[in-house]
Amino acid sequence: MLRSILALGKSLLNSLRDLAPIILVITFFQLVVLQQPIPDLGGLLGGTLLVTLGLTFFIYGLEMGLFPIGESMAQAFSQKGSVFWLLVFAFTLGFSTTVAEPALIAVAAEAAKVAANGGMIESSEHAMHSYATGLRLTVAISVGLAIVIGVLRILKGWPIHYLIIGGYAGIVIMTGFAPPAIIGIAYDSGGVTTSTITVPLVTALGVGLASSIRGRNPMVDGFGLIAFASLTPMIFVMGYGMII
């Protein structure tokens, strides 16, 4: 009992240390640069307490739930030996975690505004809504494909940098043809697709796969799934902007 309380206290302190920089930055700019009092000190302290508790629980649950399930599924798939179902799983995981991602919904709505302003689509509510939905599906499909490509890479042992450099070349070529208004959003869409829950799960999946296949090094082959998931949306969003 005492030991678990001590462990909890230690991880709370760790979380507080993780959050200290952000609190310092905000206080410094508020008091020294903008020279204004902190509007709601009680709320700020209460919020900081919630954030600290939240981060502690998250890290705790991460090592209890997300990491083990990702790895045990990777092992189960490699024992079952069915590449087809593994790839179906990879696609479904990528697609389903992305399509409902709040950051993506926000970006898609912004993109629809840009498209309507630029005269690419009608500026009616209906046209903007269907544009945004199409964009979300496009990004979700591209993330699903990215995880499939990433998993195939782990299975085959392809070196990652050829694929990534190929992806970069794709982005550069698409940039030359895509309508200028969509470029900023396309570049940003790469970063927003991977949420806080997806990242640990996908990382555990990749590392688990690489460690259960003989001849693969978890460090060299296990990482890289997230990299694909943040690369393909850029290409697909620019493609979407060109077609519509």
Binding site: G47, L55, F57, I59, G61, G65, I69
Partner: peptide
């Protein structure tokens, strides 16, 4: 594993709520 998922859920909610309550409004205003 289920407990782990529960902790992740709870932790992330507290985390987001705390940010939304304290740091985000101030940061955005700044």
């Amino acid at each position: 594993v289920l407990f782990g998922f529960f902790y992740v859920l709870l932790g992330l909610s507290l985390f987001l709520q705390g940010l939304e309550q304290a740091l985000f409004p101030l940061g955005r205003l700044m």
